[in-house]
């Protein structure tokens, strides 16, 4: 009975597979590297800290993918944001102003992309490819050096980046007898707020449901009287806005800006969303799945890093293998559903 219920909703099953896979992977890490501190809560929190930016970006990517679109400009936008913040802070511009500036630029950039996709009806892939070229190039126009943010350039920003929020539980006593309390940083809080906000937006607001409607069947959505162009415009704007927030989280973690930063981040975001059960054909998916997708990505790279002997290309290969697995599962589900309908 229970299995039958699950089978009826293959999307829930997919989400379940993702969560189980994460638990298995993490458990594997705990068993293999328990002597290297993998079992400590801090390891998990470190995955969150490193991937806080990616969580925000994947939330935006999920929204765009729900409308059957794609946004591959996110990596470039993050690089541009980091560079802008690094250069701006070194020029003496106050940190809050810089943050607002980056977010405003993100929104404007998203409006442009949304206009081209929604109103001019150009393929999202091409538009965001141009966006990627543009942002990567602009990063180099701003500066081609590796600019780092130090305490001298902005004490406030430096304080933000190094502020530890200590958790009251899960600590451990290290071999010197000192109690280490687990901590998270500000960017994790930002990422979690974004995650929860987008979760509720997708579930309970008109705009959230519109995203699903447009992605599910554009024609019926149009016949229902939805303004598809406007929904798409808003989706891309939201994606770039969240990407800017993600860029700030990223910058708080790396504290530098360079042309080579966030290379291939767009593929991380897309694969996280796909592993989390979001269909690229649109209409299906939610951010909780995407969150676990990011965690799986993070766990794989964390395991490879902890091992220390594996080649640096293994995370890419493993993620691609997982992507392959999930895509095949999705297509099998789609085939079963088609058979049922006929």
């Amino acid at each position: 009975m229970n299995i039958k219920k699950l089978n009826l909703n293959s999307h829930t099953l997919l989400l379940l597979i993702t969560i189980v896979l994460f638990i298995i992977l993490y458990g594997l890490g705990c068993i293999l590297y328990s002597n290297k501190g993998f079992t400590h809560l801090q390891t998990f929190l470190n995955i969150l800290i490193t991937n806080a930016g990616l969580i925000c970006i994947t939330c935006g990517m999920t929204c765009v993918m729900l409308t059957a679109g794609i946004d591959i400009s996110v990596g470039g936008l993050v690089a541009m944001d980091c560079m802008l913040i690094a250069v701006g802070l070194n020029k003496g511009i106050p940190a809050p102003l810089m943050v607002i500036l980056v977010i405003v630029i993100g929104i404007l950039f998203g409006l442009m992309q949304g206009f081209f996709v929604g109103y001019l009806n150009i393929q999202p892939f091409i538009v965001s490819m141009a966006g990627m070229f543009f942002t990567r190039g602009m990063t180099a126009v701003i500066s081609t050096d590796q600019v780092s943010i130090t305490e001298q350039s902005s004490p406030l920003y430096y304080a933000w980046a190094n502020y530890k929020i200590k958790l009251p539980f899960g600590g451990y006593i290290n071999n010197k007898g000192v109690y280490n309390a687990p901590y998270i940083r500000i960017n994790v809080i930002i990422a979690l707020i974004v995650l929860i906000a987008i979760f509720f937006m997708l579930r309970h607001t008109r705009f959230g449901r519109n995203l699903y409607a447009v992605g599910g069947n554009e024609q019926s959505a149009a016949m229902m009287g939805l303004n598809i162009k406007n929904v798409k415009l808003k989706a891309y704007t939201l994606s770039s806005f969240l990407c800017s927030i993600g860029g700030i989280c990223f910058s708080l973690n790396t504290m530098s800006g360079s042309v080579q930063q966030a290379l291939g981040l767009e593929m991380d975001a897309i694969s996280s969303a796909v592993i989390g059960g979001t269909l690229l054909t649109g209409g299906v998916g939610n951010v909780i799945g995407s969150f676990f997708g990011v965690l799986i990505n993070g766990t794989i790279s964390s395991i490879v890093k902890t091992n220390g002997k594996l080649a640096s290309s293994w995370p890419n290969i493993l993620t691609a293998a997982l992507l392959f697995l999930f895509i095949v599962i999705q297509s099998i589900f789609a085939a079963i559903r088609n058979k049922k309908m006929h």
Partner: peptide
Amino acid sequence: NQAPVFKAIIVIIIVAIQAP
């Protein structure tokens, strides 16, 4: 590193001309 900016503008112009 800066050349992509111009490439992006060219891409957008080309596809915008062809857009229905």
